[in-house]
């Protein structure tokens, strides 16, 4: 777990340094958004595969799936609620979101 954490943090910092020092060619910089979207969708596709390839999980999806789904809805809902409650103590600059 620690190694994974260091690995992810390391690669993020590396990218951060490159971005900070403006080491990217303008051509690549224009494509950043597209690359991000493409690799994200690829990753999600692979995540879907992990679910679909496991017969046990697929059959479980229909038996215990509903229960699991209800639990996750409540976990997410209460997370939103509690973060909403502490939000006023966090001084963020509010900006409009594009798109």
């Amino acid at each position: 777990m620690v190694i994974t954490l260091i690995k992810y943090l390391g690669i993020l910092v590396l990218g951060g340094l490159i971005g900070y020092k403006d080491k990217l060619s303008p051509k690549l910089e224009g494509k950043l958004n597209t690359i991000q979207t493409a690799s994200l969708l690829f990753l999600l596709f692979v995540m879907g595969i992990t679910i679909g390839i496991n017969d046990k999980v697929i059959s479980n999806i229909f038996s215990i799936g509903l229960k699991a789904f209800i639990i996750s809805i409540f976990a997410v809902g209460f997370s939103i609620l509690f973060v909403h409650l502490v939000k006023k103590f966090i001084p963020l600059e509010e900006k409009e979101i594009e798109s």
């Binding site: 992810y8 690669i11 910092v13 951060g16 490159i18 690359i35 991000q36 690799s39 995540m47």
Partner: peptide, 20 residues
Amino acid sequence: TIIDIGLMVLLFFVGIDLGK
């Protein structure tokens, strides 16, 4: 392994975004 490599690529570019 595939997920790991994909994540690294993604995080790298997210890092660049943050660094800018």
